[in-house]
Design a protein around this nucleic acid. Sequence first.
DNA 1: TGGCATACTTGCGCGTCACGCAAAAAACGC
DNA 2: GCGTTTTTTGCGTGACGCGCAAGTATGCCA
Lengths: 193, 193
Amino acid sequence: MGLRERKKEETRHALSDAALRLAVERGLENVRVEDIAAAADVSPRTFNNYFSSKREAIVWRAAERTLGLARQLRERPVSEPLWDAITQAALSQHRTARTPDEKWLSGVRLVLGSPALQGEFLRSHHTAELELTAAIAERTGTDPERDMSPRLIAGAVGLANQVATEYWLEADPPVSIENLLREALSLLRKEVS
Amino acid sequence: MGLRERKKEETRHALSDAALRLAVERGLENVRVEDIAAAADVSPRTFNNYFSSKREAIVWRAAERTLGLARQLRERPVSEPLWDAITQAALSQHRTARTPDEKWLSGVRLVLGSPALQGEFLRSHHTAELELTAAIAERTGTDPERDMSPRLIAGAVGLANQVATEYWLEADPPVSIENLLREALSLLRKEVS
DNA sequence: TGGCATACTTGCGCGTCACGCAAAAAACGC
DNA sequence: GCGTTTTTTGCGTGACGCGCAAGTATGCCA
C-alpha cells in the first residue's frame, strides 16, 4: 500500500474523528463543515471529497464496525454451527473495544439522540447488512437472490445488535453489553414463534 | 374534527402526494421544494411548516402505513396467539391497497433506490416500530422497559416486512407480496436457531 | 351575529450546504 | 529528473432549513 492510499485513509479517519469529536463537544448543529475540515487540517472542499455530509462522516466509524462482523464471520471455521459462529463474531465485535470506551459511548448517545443522525446510521447499517448477508449465504451455500433466509438472518443479527445497544445505553444499573447481546440473540431464537 | 384540522390534514396529504409524484416523475434531484409547494397550491415557506425536508414529505405515507400495523394489532382479539395476530395484521396492511398498486410500486422503487431516501425511510420505520413495540407489550402484558422481547418481536416483524418488500420488488416472475411476507415471517420463526 | 383570541400562512432574510469545474500541488513509475 | 496520474484546493452557484414578524383564516363565546 503506497503513500498515496495511506494518506487517504489517514485523512478519512482524521475527518471522521474530528466530526464526531466536535459534534459530541458542542452539539451537531454547532459544527460547520468548515470546522471539521480545519480540525483535520484540510480545506473545506476536500471534506466533500471524502464524505458527502457531516452526518456521513460521523457515522462512518460505526459502519466500519458493523462490516467487521461480516469479516469475523468469514474467518470462523465452517464446521461451527452457523448461529454459534454468528454469536461469537457479534460478541467479539464488542470485545475489541475497552469495556467502558467513553468515546464510543458518547458517540452512540449522540447518534441515537439526533433524528438526523439516526437516519444516516440506519442506512449505513443496512448497507453493511448486505455484506453480512453475503457472508452468511456463502457459509450456508445458499443463493441469496432466491432464498430470503440469509438476508433474514443477517437482519436478525443486526436487530439484536441494535436493540442490545439501545437497552445497554438506558440500563440502570449498567449491564454488560455482551450479556444483553447474548440475551437478545437467544430471545430472538426462542420468542419468534 | 373541525375545519381547521381537516384542512391541515388535507394540506399535509397534498404536499406528501405532490412530493412523491413529482419525485417519481422527474427524479428526486429535479424537484425543488418550491415545485412541491406550487403543486399543492401553498407557499414554499408553508411546506416547511409541515415537513422539514423533501425526503420527510415523500416518506411520510409509508410511515403512516407502518403505524397502521400497530393499530390493526390492537384491534385483534387477545385470545388469538400473538404470532398469528401479527401475521394477520401484517398481511392486512397489504390487502388494503389494490393488488398491483402502481403508485405504491413506483414509490417503493424510488425510495429504495435513492440513498438519501433510504435513510429517511428507515428512520421513520424505526420510529413506527416503537408504536408496534408498545402494542405488543400491551398485548403480552410485558414491560418493554425491562424486557427486550416486545422490541425484538416488533423489530422482527419490521424486518420481515422490509425483506419481503425488497424481494417482491426484484421478483421475476412476479410473486404476491402476501406470500413473500408469510414466508419471511415463517422463515424467521424457523431459521433463527 | 359580532368580535376577539388563537392558530396557520406567508414573505423576507440569513447562514449553511453539496457539488461542478478547472487550476495548482503532490505522489507515482520509469 | 520528468511526464503522468491522482488529489487537493478555491471559486461560484443553486438550493435548503428555519427564525421572525406581519397578515389571514378559523374557532368560540356573548
